[in-house]
Simulated scan of single mutants.
Amino acid sequence: MPSAVALSPDALTPDEFTARLRALAPRYWDRHPFHLRLHEGRLTAHELRLWAANRWYYQRAIPRKDAAILSNCPDVDVRRAWRERIVWHDGDRPGEGGAEDWLRLAEAVGLSREEVLDERHVLPGTRFAVDAYVTFARTRPWVEAVASGLTEMFSRDLMARRLADMRLHYPWIAEEGFAYFTARLGVVADEGKSTVDIVVRHCRTRGQQEAAVAALAFKCDVLRGLLDAVDYHCAGGSS
């Protein structure tokens, strides 16, 4: 790995910078009212299906977001590490990968594969938020796009709790429907640490650090915007 460029005089120390990033945890979507109802077992089957279909639109965008980062990143070491994320989601062949596992969840809650893939249930708010995220990754400096993915720092505990709560409160969901969560739990902690390392190593000025914090805040808003759209629809709002 190439040696890091020295920090500029006004830059935060690595520990201070990391603390600024972690301080955004309250903006993560784990505290969104829709997620709270999901974990409490208060969603109807229809609401679970709407959530799964809209979350699919986000899942299918992740490899395109990661490909945009690769196309903008001049650092070969980062590219080597980052391309594994695309493989994880897309798989090496048809029928494999995280996206396929999410489709299995959608089927387990009662959706057909066809209605998920044709996106008939995707709400305008979901589409707007997710498309904005892909555009951000394509048009902003690559390290800001990487920083936007630091929601991984907050996701492992939420994912473990979701798996336990969904098994408890929605026993009608077949176990194979949880393949996405069980597989993701095995990689998200390591991915989160490697992402922090990349961002800290490459943000050497205060301006770069502030841009990275803003990028993570933006990603939190994207995720909450997706749930806002689903929650509003479930409450009877027009789409």
Rank of each mutant, 00 (worst) to 15 (best):
D231V: 06
R140Q: 15
Y28G: 03
T18E: 11
V230P: 07
A19D: 10
V188K: 05
R37H: 11
W56V: 00
T126C: 15
G98Y: 02
L223S: 13
E96L: 08
D90N: 11
L48E: 06
V199T: 10
A108E: 12
S194G: 01
R140S: 01
T126L: 02
R93W: 00
R167L: 02
G236P: 14
T205L: 12
L36Q: 15
A129W: 05
T13L: 14
H32T: 10
R55Q: 13
G110M: 10
P74N: 07
D75Q: 08
E144Q: 15
A81H: 11
E114A: 15
W172H: 10
R55C: 10
I173R: 02
A108C: 10
R31G: 15
R201S: 07
G41V: 03
V76D: 14
R93S: 03
R31T: 14
A147G: 08
G41T: 10
E191Y: 01
A129R: 06
I86C: 09
V143N: 05
F218P: 05
G225V: 09
A164V: 09
L7G: 03
D66M: 14
G95R: 02
C73Q: 02
E191K: 04
R120Q: 12
L105W: 12
L185A: 08
R22N: 08
D165L: 12
S194N: 09
Y180K: 04
D10N: 01
H202K: 05
H202F: 10
W88R: 01
N54F: 01
V199Q: 12
D231T: 07
R162S: 15
S239Q: 10
I198E: 02
A164P: 00
L43S: 08
L103D: 04
V109N: 03
V230Q: 07
G95Q: 08
R55N: 15
T126A: 06
D231L: 02
R161D: 12
R113L: 07
M166K: 00
P74T: 11
F154L: 01
G237P: 04
R104D: 10
L226D: 05
I69K: 03
L150K: 04
C73V: 00
R49V: 02
G237E: 03
